[in-house]
Amino acid sequence: MRYFIAILIFVIVATVSILGFRQDKFTQTPIWVFPDMDIQARYEPQGKNEFYANQMDDRPIVPGTVQRGYGWEKKQVFSGDYQWDVIDNPSMYSGKKENGDWYEGFPVEVTPALLQSGKEKYDIFCLVCHGDTGDGNGITKKYGMAATPSYHTDVLRSMPEGEIFNTITNGKNLMGAYGMKLNPEERWAVIAYVRALQLAGNATVEDVPQQNRRDLGL
């Protein structure tokens, strides 16, 4: 028992000697036993840096840097005739109507060029999970990934385009967000291509224009 008391006293004295009493002010830099993420070798915003001539951490943008955000320019923003697309066409960037409901339809003109762009982006970002026809039988399914829903269901066929836009932008369940990889117009292009896949997967002969039926052997 006496050894235990001696060891306990020693531990207490050692702890107080190293860490000090509670609420005491350190006159020297305290000892960081587990610094973890408290001390990081990084540059702070608007911090001082003796290495550079202007002694600032903030550096000019490297030429060729990929733009983030909406690309505001002061000369444009503070000019009298400045127009902001986000205000002029809010559904284009939010997928919602002014009353907050999901936008139905497309806030951009659906053209063959837009569909082609949608196919290209779909093949890059979506096909691996959703499959080339949108049936959910993508490459990832072969490797044991959870089943990807098919686009050819009544739920997804009737889903407003704005809600699909929101899913692409922010992700849902196991699907990650693609808002940082696809700009708004590209997201709408993908949605237009998805609608084309849905139409093709549930179409009948009557949906094919008369002048194109001969090309399909109909």
Rank of each mutant, 00 (worst) to 15 (best):
R68L: 11
F26W: 11
P160I: 02
L8W: 11
N183W: 06
Q55N: 15
R42I: 01
E206S: 15
K96M: 07
N183T: 00
E186I: 02
M56A: 08
M92K: 09
P45S: 14
G176K: 06
Y52R: 12
Q55F: 13
A192D: 00
M37F: 13
V194E: 15
E44N: 11
S94N: 03
L216I: 09
M1P: 08
F10M: 07
A189W: 04
G144F: 05
L156P: 00
T29S: 00
E73A: 15
K25G: 05
V13N: 03
N89F: 03
V77G: 00
W102E: 11
F10L: 10
N99W: 09
K48H: 14
E206K: 04
V11N: 05
Q28S: 07
D85G: 09
A6S: 13
Y93M: 03
G95H: 01
V194K: 09
E44Y: 06
V190C: 04
K25D: 07
L199P: 02
T148I: 07
I87N: 03
Y122D: 14
V11T: 06
L156N: 01
I12S: 12
T148H: 04
P107Q: 06
E50D: 14
L127E: 14
S150P: 09
P209R: 11
S91Q: 02
I31T: 11
D101C: 10
E109Y: 10
I139D: 12
F21A: 14
V194Q: 12
N173G: 09
M159R: 09
L182S: 08
V128A: 13
Q116S: 15
R68S: 02
Y70E: 12
G201P: 12
D135I: 06
T15D: 06
T140L: 10
K75N: 06
K97A: 11
G144T: 05
Y82N: 15
M180D: 15
T148S: 05
V194I: 15
L114F: 11
N137P: 05
K97S: 10
L8S: 13
T15M: 04
G134V: 00
V108N: 07
P160D: 04
K75D: 06
G71N: 01
P90D: 03
S17C: 12
P184A: 06
S79W: 10
N202G: 13
W188D: 01
G134Y: 02
K141E: 14
I168A: 01
A146Q: 12
L8N: 12
Q23N: 15
E50C: 01
Y93W: 14
I168G: 01
I39R: 00
Y82V: 08
R213G: 03
